[in-house]
Structure formats: structure tokens, C-alpha cells
Design a protein around this nucleic acid. Structure first.
Lengths: 256, 256
DNA sequence: AGGCGCTTGTGAAGACGTGCACAAATCGCG
DNA sequence: CGCGATTTGTGCACGTCTTCACAAGCGCCT
């Protein structure tokens, strides 16, 4: 870490400097820091310490400092971080300086909500197209955008460069849509359908499954309940599991 | 791992056996396995190998075997896993044998979609109440449920035991709602609002932020673009960062 | 100018998660 | 009955992530 802040390489548009390859865990936290920083900026703070920022983002302060150090970091010892500068750094690294176009496929229950979600626009993204396979939905106007048929994807991609595809279709249609997105050059996909997508190498897929989150919470609920129910049992049969339970009432729930 | 399948301890309702404390990473994958297993069961498979199941769930097969071994596992060497039995095991561990009641607070854009999302009902959850702070929304009927005012939360909790609270409000209202949920005894919260919640110890919070997912994808897009733009630069200045970029056009964004 | 308090950046250690590779176990067949 | 094919369960090594603790650096006050 000899010299950062080397004056050269401003390179407004072209010549993107090579990005440091951040740990994936760090990348996942940067948006969190960014949000906290925006809040601080709105509240009028000019600088913030790692302690303060980590509290606002809900993480350990040492972790925050290490995360920021990975991107070269511009903190000042004894003072803290310049809020505005740090916002820029993170937005640059995350590639948010350009407003990326998002294509949303599947305008059902969830798709409708996503199309109207202002959190996208406010954080550097622009929904460029709404698509659906159902002809009865094509033509509908949502939030100022007209729903087009998914087969028009090539045309949409030709009109403007789609950076990210969002899949909000039923599981059965998701793989097909993913293939179509890949075919028109999309290399980043956010998948809300509860299924595994297979995509060629070089394409990033992130998955959000609302039911999975609930199931994880359910586990912890179950766990808490089982612990408070048997507070006496010290450390004896930790590996105990139901086992025989298959015979009784679960049968009617599963069956055929 | 001497003797599993010990015949005793079926204990229908009461006497919940102590759950093994699974690694968090394993818990997060169990719902994935569960979904894949349901698909296999629907397709008529009676047994499945770790290889087959791991492919369907999109994970490494060794990882899957280790995950399943943590819950005692009921595979048969040379054969594989009994699909129906494994479904039961996982559903039991995740606490899905009882249909847990969910209270959804915030019936705006996203809340509407969540209220209508059938993925909850189909995977062991039941939306027991819809709540909102906006009086103009109270009384509205969504999917057979009438929206009630959030201040009625104590009454709702008294009517039936709420296992999980889902927060789909704007960020500004989220902490307040979380406090209300905690006050009526909810110990698991799924938060869709883009903010950090502070809750007492013993309360689990999981967070889903749609914009964060996009930002993570944006980073990878940015990274891919910067790599393909400079394919010649071998391994020289890997730590290069913009740095000077603050001097030019960013100034007008910050300044004061 | 010098010292003091505060904060960053980082080395090192420990916890955690992953994946290979193989022994142990089971089934089916001759 | 024995053997080979198959598949689980797991020991081990490796990589990643987290956390502590502290030296280095910075600004302010005297």
C-alpha cells in the first residue's frame, strides 16, 4: 500500500482501470455501507469513523476497516472517512456511476411489485423493459412502461444495452427465459423463480427465494422452541432425531 | 454415529427432541434440497443418489452428503436416499411439520405481492394477518384477508400464535414495526425494508434487499467490463484505482 | 515544536466452510 | 455364498472469512 492517490489515470469515460478483485463477502457488504453512508450524508455528516459507520451498517468495525482497505481506502487516521469521497469510491467500484439498464421478465404478482419498486431507480438502476410471455399481459402499462412480449427480447436488447436481467416468472418458465437472456448477451441475472438455473460460464446468477428465507427462520424458531422446552437435558443425546415419526400424521401431508 | 434409527422417541406432539445444531450454511441449503426433493417426488422417484440430488439442487455432491450427515441422515450405501423419508427429515428439522403463521406488515407495493405470493402457502406457511399503518389501506381485502391496522397487532397475536413477522414497510417505519412485533412476542423477523434493525437478543432477523442484489451483480458486470477492456495488461498494476477521479466531474456532485 | 489522544490499516490467529479422496457398507448377480 | 459395482459417510487439507490487538499516522492543543 505504498502510494494511493496517484494523480494520473482520471480517464473520465474510456480506459477503465483494473478493479481490485475483492473478496466476495466484501462485495456483498459494500452496498450496505453505501446505504449507511447516504443516510449519514443526508444527515449532514462530513466524516465518519469506522466505529460509527460499522454501527450504522450493523457490522463489526474491524471487518468494515478491512473491507474498505481492500479498495485502497481513503480514511484519515485520527479523523475517519470522508463521507462523500467514500460514497464515490464505493459507487465507482460497484459500477454504479453509470445507470444500468434492467430488463424485467415476468409481470405477475411479484413482477408487478418489482416494476413499481422505487428502490431500483433510487440506487442506480433503470428498468428499461418489462416483458412477459402471456399475451394477455402484453400491452399493459405499468409505471409508465408498456409490457412487451418476451420474444421481443432481441429487439429490446438492440435498442439499448441491457446490463442485468431479472426473472420473476414461475419456476417452469425460468430456464427458458434465462436462455433467452443469455442469447441476447445478458451476463448478469437476478432470479426470483424457485429453481436452479444453468447458464454458461461467465454469466453470473444470483437467486432470491422468499420462501427459503422463511424456512430458515422457521428452523431457528423450531430450534428455540425445542431448547426452551427441554432446559434440563444437559448434553446427553444431542444427536437425537425423530426417526419413527414417518408413520403418523406426516403421511397425510405427503403421501402420493 | 453408532446407532441412528433408534425406535423410541416418536413423541407425536409434546417432547420435541433436541435438534442438532447445524452449521448455518447447511441450514441455508436445506430448503434448496427440500425443493429439489419435492420435484423428484413429483416425478415419481423413490430414491435418489447424492450425485443426482446435488445436481438438482445445484451444489457439490460431497457438500450435500456432509450436510445430510449432520442431521443424522438416512441414506443407504449403494442405493442412495429415500426421497419421501428425506423430505420428512428435512421438513421436521426445519420445523415445517406445523404450518407456521406469518404476519405481514406493510401492504404497499411489495407487501401486496407478498400477500398474493403462493410460494408461502405451498411451502408450509400461512399468512395469518395483513397489517398497515396507513388508515386508507385498512379494510382493503387482499387474497381473502382484510388489512387491519398495525396497532391491532396485540389483538392479532392474541388470536393466534404468530411465528414470524414480515416487514414490508418503507425504511422509516421498519424499526418501529420491529419493536411492535417484538413486543407481542415475535422472535423471527424477515425484513424487506432497506435498513438495519436493532432487536433484543434471541430475536432472529433476516434481511432481503432487492437493490443490494442488483448492486452485487453490477459489481461483477463492472469487473467483467474492465477485464475485457484491458486484456493486455498482464499482472502489473492490480491495485490501481481511480483515485484522481474526485477532481474532475465528481466535484460538482459533492462540493458544497 | 512537541506531546497526546484518537483512528486507521494490518498481521496473526482462530473459526468456519469446502472439496477431495477413500474406507465402510449395501445390493444384486452369478 | 462370495464378489464386484455402487454409493454413503467422513478424515484431512486447503482456502476464505472473521476478530483481536496493536503499531503507524494524523490532527489538535499547549
Amino acid at each position: 500500500m505504498s502510494q494511493h492517490r496517484h494523480p494520473g489515470a482520471p480517464g473520465r469515460a474510456g480506459a477503465v482501470p483494473v478493479l481490485p478483485d475483492l473478496p466476495e463477502a466484501t462485495v456483498a457488504r459494500l452496498p450496505e455501507y453505501l446505504r449507511a453512508l447516504h443516510n449519514l450524508a443526508d444527515a449532514g455528516h462530513e466524516t465518519v469513523s469506522s466505529e460509527g459507520l460499522s454501527a450504522a451498517a450493523g457490522v463489526n468495525s474491524a471487518k468494515l476497516r478491512k473491507d474498505l482497505s481492500h479498495l485502497g481506502s481513503y480514511g484519515t487516521r485520527g479523523v475517519g472517512y470522508d463521507v462523500a469521497l467514500l460514497i464515490e469510491q464505493i459507487e465507482y467500484v460497484l459500477g454504479l456511476t453509470q445507470r444500468r439498464a434492467v430488463a424485467l421478465v415476468g409481470v405477475g404478482n411479484l413482477g408487478h411489485a418489482l416494476a413499481g419498486y422505487d428502490g431500483f431507480a433510487s440506487r442506480g438502476f433503470r428498468i428499461a423493459a418489462l416483458l412477459d410471455a402471456d399475451p394477455s399481459r402484453v400491452g399493459e402499462e405499468i409505471n409508465g412502461l408498456v409490457v412487451r412480449h418476451v420474444d421481443e427480447l432481441p429487439a429490446v436488447a438492440a435498442e439499448e444495452s441491457i446490463a442485468i436481467g431479472v426473472i420473476a416468472t414461475p419456476a417452469g418458465a425460468a430456464q427458458r427465459v434465462a436462455d433467452q437472456l443469455v442469447a441476447v448477451g445478458v451476463t448478469s441475472i437476478l432470479n426470483f423463480a424457485p429453481c436452479v438455473l444453468s447458464v454458461p460460464e461467465g454469466v453470473d446468477v444470483r437467486k432470491v427465494d422468499l420462501a427459503i428465507e422463511l424456512q430458515i427462520l422457521s428452523f431457528h424458531e423450531h430450534r428455540k422452541a425445542s431448547l426452551t422446552a427441554l432446559p434440563a437435558t444437559g448434553g446427553s443425546a444431542l444427536t437425537a432425531l425423530p426417526g419413527g415419526l414417518a408413520a403418523t400424521d406426516t403421511q397425510e401431508a405427503i403421501g402420493t
